[in-house]
Structures are given as C-alpha cells and as structure tokens.
Design a protein around this nucleic acid. Structure first.
Lengths: 359, 359
DNA sequence: TTTCAACACGCAAACGTTGTAGTTGATTTC
DNA sequence: GAAATCAACTACAACGTTTGCGTGTTGAAA
C-alpha cells in the first residue's frame, strides 16, 4: 500500500526513498544497484526490481558534486545560425555523447562581454572544460584575460577555427594558408590571370591567413601582386541587414577592375560576388571563376553551384571534443601534457563556378 | 604567506577554504558573502575582500543539489545544421540567459532512439525542463512513452513546431493552416491557375497542416482540387546526399503537369523546384511563381530571391523558453496550471519569385 | 551585582551519492 | 569451546552550499 502510494507520487525516487521502502540502509541500496558482492543475491534482486519498477536513475547532480566532474562540455561560439559552427557542434555533440558527455552551448554573438559572461556563467562547476571559437570583438580588443583566468583555474580550453597564438592550449584549425594556396593555384591553372580576393579585415585570423596564402601563391607563380585586387570587407557589412551595402561595395570593386577570378573567404562573399557579377554582365564560370570557403547550403544550392573549400566542420568538432575529453580524463600523468594543435584537412569541392584545369 | 601559497594553487576556492584561511566558520563566510545582518560589518568586509581576491564563485553544482533545481534547460531538436532550428535555439538561449538559465543541447538526428536516449540522459537531474521538437521517426512510430514518462516524473516539457495533440503540455507553433492559406491566396490573387504543392508525407504534422491549408484555400476560391498537383516527397530524399533523386522526382512532377505556381513546404523543396523548373525552360516568376516556407539563407540568396513564409524562429524560441521558465518558477499555485499553446504569427516575405497582386 | 537583550558567530542538517570502516550474528577452526 | 573467519549488512564522512537555531560574549538596564 505504501508502494502504491509512492507510485502515484511523481516524486523522483532516491536511494533514500528506496531504502526506507525496502527497510534496508541507503548504502545497501547503492551497493545492490552497483552489483557489489558485499550484498546477497537475494537482496540485490529485490532492490533492482524495485528500482526498475520506479524507474530509478542516479541523480546526476549529486554524482557531479561527489566526483567533482560534471561530464559536461561547454561550447562557446560566436553565432549559431551559421552553417560552419553548427556543423562543428554536431561533430562535438556526436563524439561527446559517445563518450558519455553532454554539451552546453553558449553564444557570444561576436561580443566580447557576452563571451566573458558565458565563460563566467559556466566556469563555476557547471562544466569540465571549454570548447571555444572566439568572438570577433575579442580578436579586435586582444583582451584575453578571461581565457587565461579560466585556464589558470584548471579548466581546460580547446580553441577551434578562430584561435590565438598567444594562449597556450589545445587547438583545432584548418591550414588556412595552404588551403587558400590550393584554391588560388587551381584558379591559375585553369587560366585565370587577374585573380581577386574578397576577404575580411586582418584581425579575423582566418581572413588574414587566407589572404596570406593568396599572396604567397601569386608570388610562387611569378604573378605581380596588385594590392587593389584585395578587397577587405568592413566587418559590419557581414550582418544580414547590410546586404545592400555589401553588394554595393563588391559592385564597385568588380567594376573598377578587370577581374577573371575571385577567391572569397566565406560563402556569403562568394554568393554576393556572383550575384553582383551576373548583374553587371559577367558569365560564370566562362569569364569569371569563383571559389568560396565553407561548404554550406548556400554553395550547394547557389546558381550556379559554387566550387568551394570544405573545412570538414564535423571532423573539426570531433577533434576538439576528443582533445578536450582526453585531456580531462588524462589528468593522470602530466607527462602527456604538451598542448596539441590538430590541423584538419580541407578539400576543394568542384562544382560549376570553376573551369576544368588546362592541361 | 599562506595566502601566497594558495594563490599559486589553481584549486578553486570554496567556502571551506576561505573559512579556514580567515579562521572563521563556513557559515560565517557564507553569510558574509550574502550580506546577512547576522555578521558584523568588519567581518563582511574582510570576507568579501578575500573572496574577491581569490575570485570565489559559488559552486553551481552544489547549489543545484541543494536547491533541487539546475537552472538549466534541455533542448532536444532533430538536427542542428538547420536554419530554422538554430534560429529557434538562438531565441531560446537569448531569453534563457536573461533569466539566468543555461541551455543544454541534445540532437536526435531524427531518430527515435536517440531522442529517447537524450531525454533519459538529461532527465536525471541535469535539467529542470525540456524544450523539444520531435524526430520524424517518433512521429512515424507514434511512440510517445518517453514524453509521457518525463512529464509524469514532474519534468515539464514544451514542444515547438513538431508538436503532438496527444500529449498535453505547453506548445509553441505557427498556424500552419492559416499561413499556408495566406500563401495560396496570394498565388491565386496574382493570377495563378494551376497551383501545385510540394509537401512531405502526412506524418510530419507541418506538412499535413500546410497541405490542409492549401486544399482549403482552393475550395474557398471554388477551384477544383486536382490531387495530382500534390507532390508528397518521400522522406529519405530530404537528406543532402539524395539531392539528385529529389530533383528527379520534382522534374517528373513538373513535366507531367501544367503548373504555374508552387507552394513548397520548406526551403529545400522550393529551391529544388526552382532549379529544376529553370532547367526545363520555366521562367520565374513570369510563368512559374514559387513560395517557400522557412525564411533561411537559401531563400534570401537564391536566384531569384525566394518569396517565402517567415516563421520567426527567434520569437518561437523566446516563447518556448518563456513558457517553460514561467512554469518552472510558478510551481507556486497550480491554479495557473492549464497548458498553453502559443501561436506565433507568420509573415510572407515578398521577394522575386512571385508577381505583384492583380488589382 | 544580577539580568537580559543585542550582537556575532558556530553547529548541524540537508540535498543524493559513494566508499571506507565498522557492526552484527553465525559458522568454521584447532 | 574460545578464537578466528565470514557473510551481509549499516554507519559515517565527504563533495559545497544554505539556513534555522543555539550559544557565548558584550554592554546596559534593573
């Protein structure tokens, strides 16, 4: 009867409740459920049956407190309505789950303050470690105290994509320079003479590195660098509501120069360039080839489908999670303590905005 | 000197450590930090200064255990590389943070088992409540025991978008029928005679409802329903790797009929239809108008830019979070206990795949 | 001098677990 | 037949907080 009474209650069963109900001690219940040989078969059966009946699950919070670890990863990214970042998250989530970890997501919205806030909010025991891609504002301000403090507190951080040389921790990146070189080389090989690059301001590391690869490749091919073929997009124009300004800027750029190929450091720039170019009479890829970065939906479904650099976000996510969890679980010997930087391979996915390579 | 010794340790400070260091009791420290009037000004100052110096933060896990609430929301969605769902998440995150809540994300990957797993994984005290949009497989199987059990355990659930009449809980949806009616009416008003709909199998509720709106509007306009103008896409074709099959199916459909307008229940179907239509000689919007659902990047950057129904994902997210948190914090009186269903307004964003309405 | 608030603080319990260290009563050992 | 062994438990502490209540020390009123 007591049993029935409890069944109807929607209170979650605890060891204590089970113990009282079965008239044994709490530790007996705990041990029975964990199959300790200190407990008789008979008692074990009884306890297990009861626990099953009431759908007992050990309280995770209590376990976290006791074990001083939460089995939860904090992921802080600048934006979530974003193909690349979500791909990375799905990689993280997938791998983390396999290893019994959960994922808490924090968004910085590219704001330094929100990034700090998020870090603070989670660095109070809620998570075991962080995976983070830095906000643009943080990169601009070059204020990294929050990262340093977090690491000093003993909470490991793994950075991906937008990383920092100044902070020592595990990192996962693509080789932006090399990738950009591959892309530019491809354009050169397929006959392009005047290759432009549409990139970001220098403080965004990926923009800077990709530009560097561009410059390097031109040099390797003995092509004179024309600075005016480098368009650095002002940052505010990234947001969706400034689309027209972006288009305007790109249009002026395209009209001012005689360009036959474009490397764009992200999808949006590539798509915009194509749109503008088409409007002012270019034909793609006949007299304008385009390669973008980040293989997202836009590239795939653009008109024409965009040749693009895939950064394998899912793989990056998996790698970040793996680095972090390994570090969390190998506090054993500080021997294996050196921070690692994993470089994830990229791949150029050829679609219809580039020509095949001239023999 | 002890102080210096501890400063160098990266061990996180606890009340206990502070207490020992200052040679007072734990409770004194706790009370001092919470500004209890039981403690003298002097002691308070001392404790606070010390706590600040060491960057003390109350351990969240301990608090969760004590308060029996985690201030964390569990969000389970079918997919994260998805414009609509991420928009919703960003709405949830934003609002939840404002109210001091964190967000844990779980992905079901449209799989029933993973959905159950995720629910289980978090329903052990990790979170206070769930926000969920159901996996397709769950909708197919019609197995809802995991949802029922969770609610029975006293963990509130808020469903959004893919919801269930069978389960009573708070819900946030768009009025799919009405929205679809608005869209079809618009097509009719701008001169379309043979309007097709590209939709999903019926078990996806949004597909079913949008189809219902389509049928209803035709009837209201005394247009004979032609069943063959309804194309129900087989579900597997949704995945990115089956793009060609999808295209093939849509192509056959378009060729078999004399169609001058299409309502597509998601972006992908709309974009695909446009691509195929263009390939077989249609001109958009001159002799084929298209309206899609879900205002994502694809719609905005499509060629031509797609007229589409915006579901205001961010607002939906905010509403789900609000419903959930309100319920969590108002366990006070069960008076306000009735489950609510919030209907979020939609909006047709006119771009270039529809004609202006005939006067 | 006694009595008594007021003050400033400490104690202990509780949240749900787990693991170590007892505590039983019964059985074996020589 | 007393000591040792053993099986099958129970008690307790600890993880880090918060909080109600108890208590010792004041200074002042009686």
């Amino acid at each position: 009867m007591k049993i029935i009474e409890n069944l109807s209650m929607k209170q979650k069963p605890t060891l204590k409740i089970i113990a009282k109900e079965l008239d044994v001690s709490i530790s007996t219940v705990s041990k029975a459920l964990r199959d300790s040989k200190e407990i008789s078969e008979e008692t074990k059966q009884k306890v297990k049956a009861f626990a099953k009946l009431y759908n007992y699950k050990p309280n995770n919070i209590a376990l976290s407190l006791k074990n001083r670890k939460t089995k939860t990863l904090g992921v802080i990214i600048p934006e979530i309505v974003h193909h690349f970042f979500t791909t990375v998250i799905s990689g993280i989530e997938n791998y983390a789950n396999q290893r019994g970890y959960n994922v808490i997501v924090g968004l910085s919205n590219e704001s330094f303050d929100k990034e700090v806030l998020n870090l603070d909010m989670l660095a109070n025991g809620s998570i075991d470690g962080f995976i983070i891609s830095l906000a643009k504002e943080t990169l601009q301000k070059k204020d990294y105290h929050h990262l340093r403090e977090t690491i000093d507190q003993g909470i490991p951080i793994v950075m991906f994509d937008r990383v920092l040389d100044e902070i020592s921790c595990d990192k996962v990146v693509v080789d932006d320079i090399e990738t950009s070189q591959k892309a530019v080389q491809k354009l050169i090989d397929s006959g392009a003479k005047n290759i432009a690059i549409i990139t970001t301001e220098d403080y965004v590391s990926v923009g800077k590195l990709r530009t560097r690869g561009y410059v390097k490749t031109l040099a390797q091919n003995k092509i004179q660098l024309d600075e005016s073929l480098i368009l650095k997009i002002d940052d505010h124009l990234n947001e969706e509501n400034h689309l027209e300004k972006l288009e305007h800027q790109v249009k002026e750029f395209l009209q001012s120069k005689n360009i036959d190929a474009i490397l764009a450091v992200n999808e949006l720039y590539a798509i915009t360039a194509m749109k503008v170019a088409r409007a002012i009479g270019y034909r793609i890829p006949e007299n304008l080839q385009v390669i973008g970065f980040t293989d997202g939906v836009l590239s795939k479904h653009a008109y024409p489908p965009l040749t693009t650099v895939s950064q394998h976000g899912k793989e990056m996510g998996k790698q970040t999670a793996e680095l972090l969890i390994d570090r969390l679980e190998n506090e054993s010997k500080e021997a294996d303590d050196k921070y690692k930087t994993v470089i994830v391979k990229t791949e150029i996915i050829e679609r219809e905005t580039t020509k095949s390579i001239n023999p």
